[in-house]
Nucleic acid binder design. Sequence first.
DNA 1: CCTTATGTAGACTGACAGTCGGTATAGACT
DNA 2: AGTCTATACCGACTGTCAGTCTACATAAGG
Lengths: 200, 200
Amino acid sequence: MVSQDQRKAATRRAALAAASALFGAEGYAAVSMDAVCRRADIAKGGLYHHFPTKAALFEAVVAHTAAGVSAEIEARVPQAPPYLGALKSGMALFFQECAVGSARRILVEDGPAVLGPTRWRAIDQASFGGLARLALHAAVEAGEIDRQPVEPLATLLLGAATEAVLACGAAEEYSATAQAHLGALDRLIDGLGARDARGV
Amino acid sequence: MVSQDQRKAATRRAALAAASALFGAEGYAAVSMDAVCRRADIAKGGLYHHFPTKAALFEAVVAHTAAGVSAEIEARVPQAPPYLGALKSGMALFFQECAVGSARRILVEDGPAVLGPTRWRAIDQASFGGLARLALHAAVEAGEIDRQPVEPLATLLLGAATEAVLACGAAEEYSATAQAHLGALDRLIDGLGARDARGV
DNA sequence: CCTTATGTAGACTGACAGTCGGTATAGACT
DNA sequence: AGTCTATACCGACTGTCAGTCTACATAAGG
């Protein structure tokens, strides 16, 4: 005897897992809802019972993936001074997580375009954006960088890192390209170092 | 008597203009090829005679739009020292051009995702990417910034600017948000200033 | 048990990208 | 001139896909 809640949760999990694998491997446009049904061993009606549209299903996948990646980052990056250093390693980790496997496709390539700017930013802010903002805020408080609006800066840095992932994904020589971009990103962050500390 | 070349060119222009308006207003996914045909007053066969797929039509629109924007930037930004200043005003101009109207939809939201990283980068490199790379190269030669790989840096800055456009597009208070992001972008670029000049 | 709510199932519909056989016209070659 | 060929253009047709609808199964409440 299986309770309804358990059935429901199991179905949802199966759908999410199947969708995640397919979207990650082939991209949003190339995956049909029927394919998700087949892979999850669920009928169409069942799938639509949980997710009203294909975009909603994709959004759930995006949210799940983003939560996973940002949890990984949060767990592995120390929240201690120097905060600018923490920011750098967090960015590097973000880069690594997104560069490989299905995360790139889901989070970097399809995510923003499919969900649209508004929905995307909601998820983004709740995960990586929040982490970056936190680190920058701490850096400001610790006097590592000038006092300044933190949110736009976090947005910019995330955009830069995202573009780096994209550029490396398209490159032939992955590791060299990745090194170059990570180096450039580090320099960009280092440049934020407080003017006061340099007497400018 | 109208020559074939003229007919061909006229049809192509009409298709491109119609597609540009529709894609810009409603986004790639929401525009059907039939709608483009209606608007351009062309039959489906004719449209497909010029553009083999919907994506190809969109790519032509993207290329045309990108060329227009980057020509505008090139014309209005002086190619003279200080090159970092030129880079900043170029970025600001890119931001302005992309933030308003159909360019945002075409170049920032749909472009990368629809064309895929490889095709996108080809167009990007030929327009904005090229300009940014040029400015950075000049800045390096003039000693305004440290000698370093210029291409990754250009990629990162463009990514940051693109993300800024997206963030401002979604914001309610446009002008304040735009100011904040432009300020942050300027600080990021300023931070690149050569270490030597600061004795670090 | 019987009813109702909740979840499942797959055939069906409308819309869309892309195709295919056909037509008309510009230019080449007698 | 006339004829021929290549190319621009046309629009009905096809296959596929997102999303709907109706019929059915199972768990909780009277």
